[in-house]
Design a protein around this nucleic acid. Structure first.
Lengths: 236, 236
DNA sequence: TAAGATGCATGATTTTTGTCATGTTTTGAA
DNA sequence: TTCAAAACATGACAAAAATCATGCATCTTA
């Protein structure tokens, strides 16, 4: 369905100014360009699975991916949402463990794969890139800690509002300027919020009744963002 | 009250084999040794405050420290517990932000301070140390993600059991082999679990009734660890 | 040592959230 | 196109957890 351009070079990739790799030296980018393997994953396909060993890192060229853990009772917890320019798979690689989460395409997605050895060797030779990786990890850690605090302290209504804003922040709107440009099931939204699917459905209906959102199947329109922000009760 | 040895050198520091810095090259350790500043923080004193700018990293020589966020309603959320050999303050430094959490001594604690410039310059010259930092960050990120999932999916009873095991894992037992060697208030335990103080008190009483723990003020003895593990309902 | 403050404990109650049941709608594959 | 499966929706109920109130114990410090 979705159409992607023919395999591009890293030097002309649409994400060359946004991903962490944009900070790598030219010579290394050339090397990455030679060894990278581009692939297209259809909606629902798995990039990698929790529990398996990493062989490299993935760089999203275009598309949307969710990263999710399985809880001890087998329930999905969505940890992160990724878009073009985002890199994934580095955490397990750097700590030398198996993947602790699965990556699944939310829509048809084009991804470049960079082999482990190359990634590590570039990281060794390119201090700037290493610092970028440390910054990336630090930022993710920060986000995780904030999310953790909200999960522990905020009621579900606030967390759902926050999640809707987060989805908007990550994937933005469609051309109309109000429709979230990703289609997530109610269950997926629930697994992002950390609650039961029914609670999510109920609260979404309430938000609709309050005029904050409009619902049309998986299409969600944000009508009154300011009220949503209030509902989310965010500090900044 | 507590007595610490006179300022040691990094080369003879009790933590020289456990902290991330043990992977740094000798020449850099010598440099760190020259520039480090050792300090003792009394119980309850603050190492650094959420919102202020980092000037360096802290390396705990001996003692116990909690790292905690303030939630949007001003409620404390304890993010991490630290002990001798642990480093803190690097997250904000590496992502170039203000501290997102406060560090407070849980008992009299001896800490070395390493200035920002030195830390960064050593990190730039010593690839091995940079990789250790990336590994450290990756591990912390992993822990945060697991905690996040448990927070979202597990009931408070399980989380309290898990927290007690976590405290034991972090600080261990006293000489008797059963008493947790840290004194936390019920409120602090609640802020670690992510629940109301009363709920924590009630559940601790239940655990006592079930014979899993023994309570004597802030002294907590773990009597039946296996049952606690069961109660925590952990996968591994 | 007395008194105020803080922390611990417990009961009663309310609120929040999850679960179960059921019906409807939408979707996707034969 | 049709049918089964999945997703959505909603009500009723149960369970979990927070809140409020109160009393006791312990710690601090004047």
């Amino acid at each position: 369905m979705t159409h992607f351009h023919d395999p591009t070079t890293c030097q002309s990739c649409a994400q060359r100014f946004t991903s962490v790799f944009c900070k790598a030296k030219q010579e290394f980018i050339a090397e990455i360009n030679e060894q990278k393997i581009c692939n297209i994953y259809k909606k629902g396909q798995t990039l990698f699975n929790e529990g398996s060993y990493p062989f490299g890192v993935y760089c999203i060229n275009d598309g949307k991916v969710k990263l999710s853990h399985l809880g001890d009772d087998g329930k999905e917890q969505i940890i992160r949402l990724l878009r073009g320019g985002d890199v994934l798979g580095y955490r397990a690689l750097l700590s030398g463990e198996r993947y602790s989460a699965s990556a699944i395409a939310l829509e048809d997605t084009q991804v470049c794969f960079i082999p482990k050895e190359l990634f590590i060797s570039v990281l060794k030779s390119d201090t700037g890139l290493a610092f970028e990786m440390m910054k990336l990890l630090s930022d993710e850690l920060h986000k995780a800690e904030v999310k953790l605090t909200h999960l522990a302290q905020k009621p579900i209504r606030e967390r759902l509002a926050e999640t809707l804003l987060f989805i908007k922040e990550t994937y933005g709107f469609e051309a109309d300027g109000v429709t979230l440009s990703v289609r997530l099931s109610r269950e997926e939204i629930a697994n992002l919020v950390g609650t039961a699917t029914e609670s999510t459905i109920r609260l979404l209906s309430e938000f609709k009744k309050d005029g904050m959102v409009e619902l049309d199947g998986k299409k969600i329109k944000i009508l009154r963002q300011k009220e949503l922000i209030k509902t989310a009760n965010l500090q900044d």
